[in-house]
Design a protein around this nucleic acid. Sequence first.
DNA 1: GCGACTACTTTGCATTGCAAGGTAACGTGC
DNA 2: GCACGTTACCTTGCAATGCAAAGTAGTCGC
Lengths: 120, 120
Amino acid sequence: MTKAAGAPQLRKGVLGPLVLALLEERERYGLEIVRELASRDLVASEGTVYPLLTRLQDAGAVESEWIVSERDRPRRFYRLTGAGRAELAAFRTDWPAFTRAVESILTRGDSPDQRREVHP
Amino acid sequence: MTKAAGAPQLRKGVLGPLVLALLEERERYGLEIVRELASRDLVASEGTVYPLLTRLQDAGAVESEWIVSERDRPRRFYRLTGAGRAELAAFRTDWPAFTRAVESILTRGDSPDQRREVHP
DNA sequence: GCGACTACTTTGCATTGCAAGGTAACGTGC
DNA sequence: GCACGTTACCTTGCAATGCAAAGTAGTCGC
């Protein structure tokens, strides 16, 4: 299956909420988020995620804190705020309607022998 | 927060393929495509679609032709090319993997207390 | 010290979506 | 004819997003 080059800019506008979803689980630092997304072919570089985190913080959706431990090197950890949770909830609400709308258009003149869907 | 009503910028990067899918069915003209997308809350204005059609044509995914009939006023109709079909096929291939990846992240710490079943 | 690795940051660019405004052709009513 | 509304197309200018690339530090192993 086509990898990174495969999905053009599908990602656009989705990354923000995805980062929020990752932070819902627990606090994370920048590179950790990059790796998490990259492992799912959803993002390519740090140049995307770090500015995004800054924007999310400016928007009040996340807050951050430098954490210096003795085991690891200093890292800036991001945590979801109440506003961030609300935004994530809104996205979870909108997402199904969006994919349904896309698929309603996508599966029209769809190839004849592509019917692999479940039928009772 | 700032992301107000409807689907924020989920649309980004998806509109191109959707237009191709609409043209797969039959030839269409600009405003017709705008209305088709708007009826599904997928786009707001002509300022999005007309430049997009121009880009698709420059990319060789569609071709266009002025059609002047006696019933209607002159319209520029767009038609899918071979390259456009290929691009659409690639999108149909990538789309499920994309939504799966998104949902794998979205449904993790998902609904923490979302009992659909009322218990006494 | 030197290199490799981690982690964060910044710059600059291309693409995308959109509102707003503009042009032109056609039909209806006066 | 002429004004007006409608349809259809096009263009300009801007903001947001994604990303490569390059830069800054701190840490570890040698």
